[in-house]
Design a binder for these strands. Structure first.
Lengths: 144, 144
DNA sequence: AAAACACTTCTAGTTAACTCTAAGTCAAGC
DNA sequence: GCTTGACTTAGAGTTAACTAGAAGTGTTTT
């Protein structure tokens, strides 16, 4: 098993889609701890690829870097913090889910607007009262 | 019909959930054009409530203010820009939808993690290889 | 041995969308 | 008539997460 492949910061950056700047920044913040070789150069492994993948998933749910740091610190404290970590993730998940419902509603709204542009919405099925909205826009258009 | 209710900026701000600062900022950017009374004070109407609602839906799909301004300008140019506006909204919608799929994936990931914390994921059904992830975290936890 | 890349610390700039202050005037509501 | 709120312009501050540059040294690759 040649599992012990090591990557220098530049290669690793390309691999995970982050810049070297960002990787050093994350390290300074405590999010990544690459190893060092005899000359002091950073080396990243396949485990780091997974870890960064995890980071990006957390970030993708809207979790702030400070929260991710908190998670990492809790993990470092061992098994006594398992419930706390679970609850942290649960809060993050709840937030992400309500963000998603919100996004869904906004997409629906904009879809109706597009349908209106396509002439697919008749005035009797027009939930969003586009016509009065358009009337507003007409007044709006008067100005400059 | 007492439809012609008018609101001063402070009232209106509370009504739509924005600050007076933000309303003046939006106005400066060209997103809102409230009317003025004889003394020069801004007055907002019910049409403005709808308009701000629309704005917030657009903003909620990730549309930038500069894009919303572009939309407003297109509308002011009249019916010849209808297709352009439709396509603008369509691009915004596509972006929002792919953002939503991304968010969905991230939520799924985090849900799996929570399940793992709950001990609900057995090692044979573990798609996300949490165990090796945890092994990584163990190594990670070595460092202070 | 030269080019390309990595190391350090420190510091400053970027971006979007606000958010607020100053300073002085004016209007509205009780 | 006093308090609260609105008006103006101009400009500074905030936030998060990068992003970059200087300046000088060391390492790796070709």
């Amino acid at each position: 098993m040649d599992n012990e492949q090591e990557y220098k910061i530049g290669e690793f950056a390309k691999l995970v889609g982050l810049s070297s700047f960002t990787l050093r920044y994350y390290e300074k913040e405590g999010l990544i701890k690459p190893q060092r070789n005899a000359s002091g150069l950073r080396y990243y492994t396949k485990a780091d690829i997974k870890w960064v993948g995890f980071l990006l998933h957390l970030k993708g749910t809207g979790m702030r870097i400070t929260e991710i740091i908190k998670y990492v610190e809790l993990r470092a404290q061992g098994d006594t913090t398992i419930m706390e970590r679970r609850e942290l993730l649960n809060r993050v998940k709840d937030n992400a889910e309500s963000e998603m419902r919100e996004l869904q509603r906004n997409i629906e709204f904009i879809s109706h607007k597009i349908d209106w542009y396509d002439g697919k919405v008749s005035s009797e099925t027009n939930e969003f009262k586009s016509l009065s909205f358009e009337k507003y826009l007409e007044r709006f258009a008067i100005y400059d």
